[in-house]
Design a protein around this nucleic acid. Structure first.
Length: 373
DNA sequence: GAGTCTCTCAGTAGGCTAAG
DNA sequence: CTTAGCCTACTGAGAGACTC
């Protein structure tokens, strides 16, 4: 943590600067990809009202704190901020050597924040930003929160939760960016490392905390480049099927047709079993919403063919379409009879059997009133 | 035409999960 | 330990269709 003590308006502060050429490759992702990320793509990922700046006008932010508890008792003792500067990417780390240096840290941080048009964080909406805002208020400073904020956690969940065991930054980093950390400090140990340092004033494990924070910042930037890049390109058959599903989920909100194009491409790539049925159901709901009932029914049929365990939903939807849209009571009757038989065989719950029996009774009555279709 | 049944859609509550 | 965002399931009002 070779840094320099710099003078701020509120006293001295240790600042560590590390600069990387934009050609720097983090995992398998070059930072230059940031340049190609269009603001519209960033807007797709965030949903606050602020206009998205270009990725070079964003500050990539991550804090190391004395705990998770939030509230007034938790300090952000190390704040890492990354940004594009010319042909380089700088990671600037602001560190309080003691708790009484917080005013200096906040002063330096405020200057930095005000120089950018937005922030990128990982779970920052739930953690870093509220915490920093509290520190600003307690330090009698105005929090510059009137800016674009992209929290990559919700975006990562939409994109990769189907493929990854969890969406912690370390997991995403490893499997999406191909970046493996060596000798990383687990986040849960970081508060203890800082308290040890405060007691003894020896660096101890602190350099590893700085490394951890710097890696977080680089991952944030690399991930932004990766995600925005995926959104910029047309749906790409070279992507894993699960990633296409995730891409579809991102697009769906903004552009349903484009989202569906991703879904359908994923299906052609041989998506595996539980995910495949989920996706078919998603498409079926979409078709229903647009009143394309025949298309919806075809999708429910395919789900039924794939499903191993009995599930009510597809049968129910097929029966609704037959009875209420196509008015083909005979077909509706056949669907519900078959569903009832399968439900009994599978030992389905009593409420499920009751619902099907009720439906079958009604259809039978209507069939009686309109015989020989 | 009144009364009943069914579906739909919008709003929302509860459960999960990231962050140090 | 806290907090926000997403997902799923549930609820209830309103619309439409059917029955008598």
């Amino acid at each position: 943590m070779a840094g320099a003590v710099e003078e701020t308006e509120r006293g001295p502060l240790l600042v560590v600067r590390r600069r990387f050429p934009l050609a720097h490759v983090h995992g398998d992702q070059p930072l230059t990809a940031l340049r190609a990320a269009a603001p519209e793509c960033l807007a797709l990922l965030a949903r606050d009202g602020f206009p998205p700046p270009g990725p070079e006008r964003l500050l990539y932010l991550d804090t190391e704190t004395t705990g998770l508890a939030g509230g007034t008792g938790t300090y952000a003792f190390l704040v890492g901020a990354g940004f594009v500067d010319g042909a380089e990417f700088e990671v600037r780390q602001l560190f309080m050597r003691d708790l009484d240096e917080e005013p200096a840290l906040l002063a330096a941080l405020e200057g930095l924040l005000r120089g950018f048009e937005g922030f990128v964080t990982y779970n920052g909406a739930g953690f870093d930003l509220p915490l920093l805002e509290t520190r600003f208020v307690l330090g009698r400073r105005r929090w510059p929160g009137d800016r674009f904020h992209l929290d990559l956690l919700p975006a990562a969940r939409r994109l990769w939760s189907g493929r990854l065991a969890d969406c912690r930054l370390a997991t995403v980093e490893q499997h999406v960016l191909g970046f493996a950390r060596e000798d990383d400090v687990p986040g849960a140990l970081i508060p203890a490392v800082y308290f040890d340092y405060l007691r003894g004033k020896h660096p101890g494990e602190l350099p590893r905390v700085f490394d951890h924070n710097r890696h977080d910042i680089l991952s944030l930037a690399a991930l932004t480049g990766r995600v925005a890049g995926a959104l910029t390109r047309a749906p790409d058959a070279a992507l894993p099927a699960e990633d296409l599903v995730g891409l579809g989920r991102l697009w769906e909100r903004r552009d349903a047709e484009r989202g569906e194009a991703c879904y359908r491409l994923a299906l052609t790539l041989g998506l595996e079993s539980p995910g495949r049925e989920r996706l078919l159901a998603r498409l079926a709901w979409g078709e229903k919403r647009r009143a394309r009932f025949t298309a919806a029914r075809t999708l429910w049929e395919e789900i039924v063919r794939l499903q191993r365990a009995f599930e009510l939903r597809p049968w129910e939807e097929m029966a609704k379409i037959d009875e209420h849209r196509r008015r083909d009571f005979a077909s509706a009757h056949a669907v519900v009879s078959e569903a009832l038989a399968r439900a009994r065989a599978a030992g389905a719950a009593e409420v499920v059997l009751a619902a099907l029996t009720h439906r079958l009774g009604r259809i039978t009555r209507r069939l009686g009133g309109q015989p020989g279709r």
